[in-house]
Amino acid sequence: MAETAIKLGGKRKPNLLDELREMLPQGNLNLCLTCGLCSSGCPSSSFDDMDPRKFLRMLSLGMDEEILASRWPWFCSMCQRCSRVCPMQIDIPQMIYKLRQKVPRSERPKGILHSCDAALANESLSAMGTSPEDFEWIVNDVLEETQTDQPEFKDLEAPLDKEGAHFLVNQNSREPMTEPDEMVPLWKILHQVGASWTYPKTAWAAENYCLFMADDEGWEHITRKAAEVTDKLGCKIFLNTE
């Protein structure tokens, strides 16, 4: 027997788990039963030899380097199928979101990065860079054509910035930019039921790539702008069509 007790030297270095701990129920990853329900129901299990349970095990073993080098956080669609069935309420996608943030912004997947940056650069918040003026022009053009070609809908409306409308409706940029006629069925339905609605002239774009980017600031900016214009116009309900 040793004369004196052996003491492990040095202070434990803070690791990834410490950073993610606040997201865990009672801050304790040992709550994970390793039952594997998360992994068996996750469509991303096995890509790059990874799955949700393994990810948690690696986290608890302090394999930070391996986790940070993994592409797997980008293979998670944030669908929450894992956390829904987890008996211990461990929110895996929320942790994966935090891991995405550990990647330097400029090194996150280009497609998402460019769409997020494009949205932040215009008042429409459109990931396709559509300006408020272009949106207004396209909407009015499609509306006039429909009113003319389909006279039963001569009173069809697609208002922009109409104060006091009940619903504020947003619009994915894909329609005005690549398939504007696809906007018409929605207008017709709203017209048929006599809904009072409006598009906003700004912050009308429904997509939010900054969320996928795990860019909290950008995400908040886009969400706040949409909420602000809804309040400014006095609309009661924000109808997200995305």
């Binding site: 469509p43 592409r71 980008w74 669609s77 998402i112 996928f212």
Partner: peptide, 19 residues
Amino acid sequence: NYCCGGGGGFLQSGFPEER
């Protein structure tokens, strides 16, 4: 249900094989 795999940025992230 299962997610189709288009969400969470998967469509734009440039990993078509995994998507």
